[in-house]
Every structure is written in structure tokens, then in C-alpha cells.
């Protein structure tokens, strides 16, 4: 019953990454995964097994809204858009992740010294 591997992401960062990606433009699920992979220069991979549950949760929380549209390849896809609540959440998440990263950076510096 162990949870499946969450990619190479720090726990809790996936939702922030999705929100960040959606800030620029509305996207469908596959495109979100691709975009994250590309912008991180292939450093971060988003598994489908994590992506869709996260999207569902965000839909329920009201951070994103979804509408059926057509992809660049002319396929019927569900396109996610950031909502005002999502924007607010993004600020919170960014701050939180920033603090975590800051903390980790400090610890790493200390360990190197």
C-alpha cells in the first residue's frame, strides 16, 4: 500500500508547479506535463499517476476550472484555467516552497562548510 513514486518532485510541489504553468495560459493535462518537463530542461518529470489526482483535487478546491476544448493536434481535450482562488493559492504555495528551499539551501551550505 505504499504510495507510488512521486516523480523526482519534492512532496507538495507538484500543485505549485501546475499552478505556475497555468499562470501563463490555460492548458490541457498532457500539455501541462510536457510544459513542466520542458521548462525544467527535463530535470522534472510529471507522472500521469500523480498529475490527474492532483488536477482533480485542485478542481475540487476551486483553484482551477476545466472546460472541454480542442488541442493543437485537433483532439478533444479538457483545458484547465487558473482561477482567482488558484492565484491566491499560488502565492501561498510559492512562499511555502520558497521557505522550504531556502531552508534546504542553508542546511546544505552548512554541511559544505
Amino acid at each position: 500500500m505504499a504510495a507510488p513514486p512521486q516523480g523526482d518532485l519534492l512532496p507538495g510541489t507538484l500543485e505549485m508547479l501546475i499552478l505556475l504553468t497555468l499562470r501563463r495560459e490555460p492548458l490541457h493535462g498532457y500539455a501541462i506535463a510536457q510544459r513542466i518537463q520542458q521548462t525544467s530542461a527535463d530535470l522534472l518529470r510529471v507522472e500521469e499517476g500523480s498529475l490527474y489526482p492532483a488536477l482533480q483535487r485542485m478542481l475540487i478546491e476551486g483553484w482551477v476550472s476545466a472546460e472541454w476544448g480542442v488541442s493543437a493536434r485537433h483532439r478533444r481535450v479538457r483545458i484547465y484555467t487558473l482561477t482567482p482562488a488558484g492565484r491566491k493559492q499560488l502565492t501561498l504555495e510559492t512562499e511555502r516552497v520558497g521557505r522550504v528551499l531556502d531552508g534546504i539551501a542553508r542546511v546544505m551550505r552548512l554541511a559544505e562548510a
Binding site: 493535462g29 490527474y52 482533480q56 493536434r73 481535450v77 479538457r78
Partner: peptide
Amino acid sequence: RDLAAELEAHLDEKIA
């Protein structure tokens, strides 16, 4: 239904 269709689309995109 939405979720199933969405996952199907996702697969198709990837295969394409």
C-alpha cells in the same frame, strides 16, 4: 466519463 475521455486524449497525444 470526463476523466476517462481525458485520459484517453492524454494517451493519444502521447502516442501521436
